Simulated assay, not measured.
Amino acid sequence: MPAKEHAHLSFENPPALPHEVVVETLERALRDRSHEGEAASVLGRSALNDEDREFVEHWCVQVGTRAAPGNPLLGLAGLCLGHAARRFGYLSGEALALVESLAARAEMDPKDVDGRALDGFDDARSFLHLW
């Protein structure tokens, strides 16, 4: 009986998107919540793959400060700041304050900010050796 061949599956993160696409998508979602799904994908993709730390951090902070209470993008912004801390080993004071604030809001009211913000805060503390 012939040996079974096994396909080796691999996963590759998609490359970062052009900055103008990211900005346009996130601005649109901040104006109109019907675009949140696309914005979530774009923000996560940037946090995981874009090599421009300042750009990634800036847009995580923009989303985390401008999205309305209860918007799922708030928790994602916190999580993505945790990804940035892991990848770059640095977050600005503004970003650190925001990731801590989003986590505190998530602890107080998960309907305001979802629990992903807690994961982002844990990542920031762990990878930046803080708190």
Rank of each mutant, 00 (worst) to 15 (best):
A104Y: 05
A16G: 09
P110V: 01
C60P: 12
H19W: 06
V63R: 00
V99P: 10
R28I: 01
R45N: 15
L96I: 01
R66E: 14
A47S: 12
L81H: 08
L17F: 06
E20T: 10
L73N: 00
A77L: 07
L30C: 05
A39P: 14
C80S: 09
S34V: 15
L96Y: 04
D32P: 12
E94V: 11
L74R: 08
L98H: 11
T25P: 02
G93I: 01
A29R: 00
L76N: 04
R86Q: 12
S41L: 13
A77W: 04
G89R: 12
R28Y: 05
H58C: 01
V21Q: 13
F55S: 07
P18H: 03
L26H: 03
F88P: 07
G82K: 10
K111V: 00
A29E: 01
L43D: 01
E38D: 15
R45G: 10
L43N: 04
E38R: 13
E57C: 06
Y90L: 00
N71P: 00
G93Y: 00
C60G: 11
M108D: 14
A29G: 01
L96E: 09
N49Y: 03
D52A: 14
A67N: 06
P18Q: 02
E54T: 14
V42C: 10
L81K: 07
R31V: 12
A106H: 11
A29N: 06
H83L: 10
D32Q: 14
H35L: 08
H83K: 09
L79N: 08
H19S: 09
L73Q: 04
N49M: 14
E51S: 12
L76T: 03
W59G: 02
R105C: 04
H58S: 09
Q62S: 11
D50W: 06
G37E: 12
P18V: 05
P69L: 02
R105G: 04
F88M: 05
G64Q: 06
A104N: 09
A95Q: 02
S46R: 01
A68I: 08
L48K: 10
K111D: 13
A106W: 09
R33K: 13
D52N: 15
L102N: 05
S46D: 02
E38S: 14
V61H: 02
V56P: 02
N49T: 15
G82R: 08
H19F: 00
P72I: 04
L30P: 11
A40S: 13
F55I: 11
V21M: 08
P110F: 00
D52P: 10
V61Y: 07
G44N: 15
A67Y: 03
E20L: 07
G44F: 12
A106D: 08
R66K: 15
W59S: 05
S34C: 11
G75N: 03
D50F: 07
